[in-house]
Computed example of a mutant assay.
Amino acid sequence: MNTNLCPACGKLNNCAQATSGSEVTHCWCFEIEVKPQALQNLPLEALNRACLCPACAGAVREAASSKQDGGSD
């Protein structure tokens, strides 16, 4: 299994942990909440082995809503 690819869509997941050989202190996924429904359709062998990409994890939608909420003040 290629841990650099999202198990849901097959695109690069941009996971710092997958590309680093050492302990990672920061990754995009540390700052978002992965939507539980994003994990429901993954193959069992992918769970806890390969990271979702930001789009499949729901990070893109979360970032867009945060910008909209912050911009309206």
Rank of each mutant, 00 (worst) to 15 (best):
M1D: 08
M1C: 10
N2Y: 01
N2T: 03
N2R: 14
T3Y: 02
T3G: 01
N4E: 07
P7A: 06
A8T: 10
A8P: 15
C9A: 12
G10H: 06
G10R: 08
K11Q: 07
K11N: 10
L12Q: 06
L12P: 15
N13S: 12
N13K: 04
N13E: 01
N14T: 12
C15G: 11
C15W: 05
A16C: 09
A16R: 13
Q17N: 10
A18P: 14
T19A: 10
T19R: 13
S20K: 14
S20C: 13
S20L: 11
S20E: 08
S22C: 12
E23F: 09
T25F: 07
T25H: 11
T25C: 10
H26V: 02
H26L: 01
C27F: 06
C27W: 00
C27T: 02
C27G: 04
W28V: 00
W28C: 05
C29N: 00
C29W: 05
C29V: 08
F30G: 01
F30D: 13
F30N: 06
F30R: 00
E31H: 06
E33R: 04
V34W: 00
V34E: 07
V34T: 13
K35F: 04
P36G: 11
P36Y: 06
P36H: 09
Q37D: 15
Q37G: 11
A38T: 02
L39A: 01
L39Y: 02
Q40F: 06
N41K: 11
N41G: 14
L42R: 01
L42I: 13
L42W: 04
L42A: 03
L42N: 03
P43D: 10
L44M: 08
L44F: 07
L44H: 03
E45H: 14
E45R: 14
E45F: 13
E45L: 12
A46H: 04
A46E: 02
L47K: 08
N48Y: 06
R49Q: 13
R49G: 11
R49M: 09
C51H: 11
L52G: 06
C53M: 01
C53S: 02
P54Y: 01
P54H: 02
P54K: 04
P54G: 07
C56P: 12
A57L: 07
A57S: 14
G58P: 13
G58M: 10
G58W: 09
A59D: 05
A59H: 02
A59P: 02
A59N: 06
V60T: 13
V60K: 13
V60H: 09
V60L: 10
R61P: 03
R61E: 08
E62G: 04
E62Q: 15
E62F: 00
E62H: 01
A63S: 05
A63W: 03
A63E: 10
S65W: 03
S65H: 04
S65P: 05
S66Q: 11
K67M: 09
Q68L: 14
Q68W: 08
D69Q: 14
G70S: 14
G70Y: 08
G71M: 11
G71I: 13
G71Q: 09
G71R: 10
G71C: 11
D73G: 15
